[in-house]
Design a protein around this nucleic acid. Structure first.
Lengths: 112, 112
DNA sequence: CGCCAACATCGACGAGCATCTATGGTGACA
DNA sequence: TGTCACCATAGATGCTCGTCGATGTTGGCG
């Protein structure tokens, strides 16, 4: 998809699915956001981050529990950061990622 | 994945993502359910069905608005029926599909 | 200044999947 | 009983994407 960032939080994008039929464009945006979560590794990433102290963790803390290589973890983090689901903060050598609660809430709302 | 049906409604499966870290198995199940929605055509299917009178529609009513061939629509409906998101009722010549509201609600709950 | 650790990027490979055309099965109706 | 919709299945194809190894970049430290 687009290599640039995809604003997730601000517009609720669409009304709940069960209200009005989705346009092709709206469906495209929503599907992209759901795809950002519809993967075992990415779901575990979210829960690992959320359960960490301070709600954040660096890449090196995640490769172990996930059983994935460092480039793969870094790739997932980047994709989901672009989707607006994660925040990224670089402190010296380490890059700390955290979950954006509003992003998940917005998706949940669409499912009614 | 398994060719047989996948029970979606009954167990909430997992606690909200932000509570406890997900096991690999739980993540697999959840991801499968999210993937059943993470596609533009399938999202539009849900909204079309939900917005129809009586909350149901037959295959021939969906191919037009979706712009997809009949086998493709039939395929999507089958997959999501197996995922527990849709119900199927055959009346004479037509096959009517409807949304299971509880299935969407269960997914929304996991996103907290 | 030189070395090392943490992270990002690149290129490639393989699995999974959405879609199509063609075909089979089934119920309605004259 | 023959014909015609409606729907499901089968097989094939092209694309997306998750994953990896290799390499580049940057900041800390002796």
């Amino acid at each position: 998809m687009s290599p640039t960032s995809l604003p997730l939080v601000e517009p609720a994008c669409c009304a709940p699915l069960t209200q009005a039929p989705l346009s092709a464009d709206e469906a495209l945006v929503l599907a992209a956001r759901l795809k950002a979560l519809a993967d075992p590794a990415r779901l575990r990433l979210v829960s690992l981050l959320a359960a960490s102290t301070g709600g954040e963790a660096c890449v090196c803390d995640l490769t172990g529990p996930l059983g994935l290589s460092q480039p793969t973890v870094s790739h997932h983090l980047k994709v989901r950061h672009q989707a607006g689901i994660l925040t990224r903060e670089k402190r010296s050598t380490w890059a700390y990622y955290a979950v954006v609660p509003a992003a998940l809430a917005a998706l949940a709302l669409v499912l009614t």
